[in-house]
Each structure stands twice: as C-alpha cells, then as structure tokens.
C-alpha cells in the first residue's frame, strides 16, 4: 500500500530535488561539462552579504505579515455573523480576494498605486502625501504588505471562522453561567478551540509569505534598489538572470531548509500545550 505513495512522492518531489542537490555540488561552464566543488557553493552563499540581506528582508516581511494578518483575521472572524442571511454574503466577500491569481493581484496594485494614473497613488498625491512605491523604500514595503493583507487575510478569516462556528453553543452558555467576561470567553473558550485551525493558518501564511515572488516581482521588481528583493526574487535573478546554476541550487536548498526549520519551530511552539497535557495526564494516571 505504501509503494504507490512512495513512487508518487519520489517522482514529484525527491527526484527533482536530487537534481538540485546534484547542481549544488558542481560547477559548469556550459558544454555539459561539470566539475565537483563539494560544499563550496554552500559556504559562499552562507557567507554572502547578499544572501543575508535577502534572508533578513524575507524574515521581516513574513513576520510583519503574520503579525498583521493573524490578529486581524481572528478579529474579523469573531465579528462575522454566525447565522442568518449575512453569513453567505460575508463568506462570498471573504472568498473573493482568494480567487484572484497572484500576478493579477500584483498588476492591480501596481496600477492602483501609480502616482500618475492609480486611484491610490494619485489620491494620496492629491491630498499632499508624498507616496511613491518605485522610489521610496517605506512606500514599497507598505504597498506590498497592504496588498498581501488584502489578498490573504481572508484565508485566516475563513479558517478561524470554521473553527468558531464549530464551538457548541453550550460553551457560551456555561461561560455566561460562570460570569465570564468577553475577553475570558475568547481566551479560555474560543482561542483554545480554534488553535488547530489557527496553526494551519499560521503555517500557510508563513510559508506563502516566505516564498512570495509574483506580487513583488510585478509591483516593485525587487526595488527600489534591492529594498524588496526577497529570497525568491534573489534566487530567480541568480538562476535565470546570471545563470549561476551551482550557487542558485545551493541557495534553493538552504531556502528550503530554512522554511522547513521555521515551520517546525512554529509547529512545536504551538502544539507544546498538547504534549504537556498528555504528559500531565500520564502523571495523573500514574498517581491514581
């Protein structure tokens, strides 16, 4: 039973990954000639300032995205109606941004933010705010972050909402009996009950934002300067722009490992309570 799955995973993931591993330890000057370089590319990438900067930018971007989208998503989900005609209206409105392709989102915001013709850019300029995402680093970042929040907060909302509607009414009734405040209800009933979907939301939003490529590529192209050159953009420049296949392959692998590591950290931190509970139960069981 496991063999077909293994075959599928091998074909779809492991074999392509191995070709990248293959590139990462060799150098080529064309003509299909390859030279063994060992871990040289890895050392070069890990020590390069260009990589450090791109990594820091990407980390900062993902951090900001999570810090905004997760609380905002929870807040919107809490405010959404639980029953009635408005439920479907809200759900459709929430789902809309998720249906738009990445590059279209990028194009929308690229035009929207333009100072000459964009509604946002022109509007801001006309009230005297000096906004230009092609020249000002802060403006470029703000544009990308607002765009991502607009595009993806819905996902967090929908996940949290699904968790919230699954909470039986009796929990809220018990909270009223116990005289719990609105905050206590959130802290001790709603948050624990949506923790699992919230974990999925955090992981998805982290991975997605950490790998973001299309939208900044369309809107800022990595600029001004290198201000919005995230790891993905840097990687493509290196692999396609400069055709440095070896370093690009080494960077891909490091990139992949960083994502894996950070996901593991999120997962471990967010599920640590559960494990603690199991240990607690075992202790209690033993002392019976």
């Amino acid at each position: 039973m496991v063999v077909p799955v293994l075959l599928l995973v091998a074909l779809s993931a492991i074999i392509p990954l191995m070709t990248v591993v293959n590139y990462s330890v060799q150098d080529t000057f064309g003509n299909n000639e390859f030279f063994w370089v060992g871990t040289e590319w890895f050392q070069e990438i890990l020590q390069s300032e260009r990589f450090h900067n791109a990594l820091l930018r990407t980390l900062l971007f993902s951090g900001l995205i999570l810090a905004i989208e997760i609380p905002l998503g929870i807040a919107i989900a809490l405010a959404m109606p639980r029953r009635g005609a408005w439920v479907s209206v809200c759900l459709v409105l929430m789902a809309l941004p998720l249906l738009i392709p990445w590059n279209v989102v990028g194009t929308i915001w690229q035009v929207f933010g333009r100072v000459d013709i964009g509604l946002l850019g022109h509007g801001l300029a006309s009230v005297g705010i000096d906004y230009n995402y092609t020249q000002n680093t802060l403006d470029a970042w703000a544009t990308l972050i607002i765009m991502d929040v607009w595009h993806w907060t819905s996902l967090v909302v929908l996940l949290c909402y699904s968790g919230l509607v699954a909470i039986p009414e009796v929990f809220y009734q018990a909270a009223r009996i116990d005289g719990a405040s609105r905050w206590s209800v959130f802290r001790y009933i709603q948050l624990p009950k949506i923790k699992r979907v919230l974990l999925i939301a955090v992981l998805l939003r982290f991975m997605d934002s950490f790998m973001i490529y299309t939208e900044p590529f369309v809107v800022t192209g990595g600029g001004p300067g290198n201000a919005t050159t995230f790891l993905s953009i840097d990687l493509v420049q290196m692999a396609v722009g400069q055709f440095d296949l070896g370093p690009a392959a080494a960077m891909s692998l490091i990139y992949f490992l960083v994502i894996l590591l950070l996901c593991w950290v999120f997962y471990t931190v967010m599920t640590s309570h559960d494990n603690e509970t199991q240990n607690g139960a075992r202790r209690a069981g033993g002392s019976r």
């Binding site: 039986p168 009796v170 009734q173 018990a174 001790y188 009933i189």
Partner: peptide, 14 residues
C-alpha cells in the same frame, strides 16, 4: 445561578 449541562463543559487549557 449554577447550571450543569448534558455534555461536560470544561475550559480546556485551564
């Protein structure tokens, strides 16, 4: 008033 419901209600994380 205190009320006990049909299905147990506990605050999971407490």
């Amino acid at each position: 008033i205190a009320q006990v419901f049909q299905f147990p209600v506990v605050y999971d994380t407490l």
